[in-house]
Amino acid sequence: MTRIAIFIMLVLVSINAAFIIYAYKLEDEIKDFKLPNVDGKMISLADYPKAKGFIIIFTCNHCPYAKSYEERIIKLHQKYGAAYPVIAINSNDAAAYPDDSFEAMKKRAAQKKYPFVYLHDESQEVAHIFGATKTPDVYLVHKEQEKNVIKYVGAIDDNYQNESEVKKHYVEDAISALEKGQEIVIKETKAIGCSIKWK
């Protein structure tokens, strides 16, 4: 019996190793990563010792849904960045989508004066580890006893088309619950986004 269990575990481990599919779930502790920012510096979560958490957003230049949320991502960082900085990550294959190349990212960040870091996940490893599937895709992380724990996954709000008609501010509501020490009411949402362009 134990032999069968060990065998199954080995198979599972080897499957994971082969495809690096971790796909974080709520309450999972995330592993730190190190990626280049558009300013040329390498960034990891450990660089923010004072942060209470992070708003990690898989996004990109070309996707209409990501574009639609660009201003709102800037505002999120302006409002919460001191405690919950936005960490934007682009994992798209630039060969298929030249608009999402590191050069194009630098250009876009300069044009729009991104106040947050915009990281290039060229190997796509971070997206794979998170289990990110589309842009934009938000993972709200809270620091709990020095661990970065996922507290909310999904959309920024409930209206990608029109910011003025938003009724539910999912990310903001989740942060405000964390700040009050309350349970987050909506912990997971789904939205339409552009599939991450895998190599």
Partner: peptide
């Protein structure tokens, strides 16, 4: 989309 994606198919991520 949060109101209808799961009704199309629960395993659909929305991508």
């Amino acid at each position: 989309a949060n109101t209808w994606i799961d009704k199309v198919e629960p395993t659909w991520t929305g991508a």
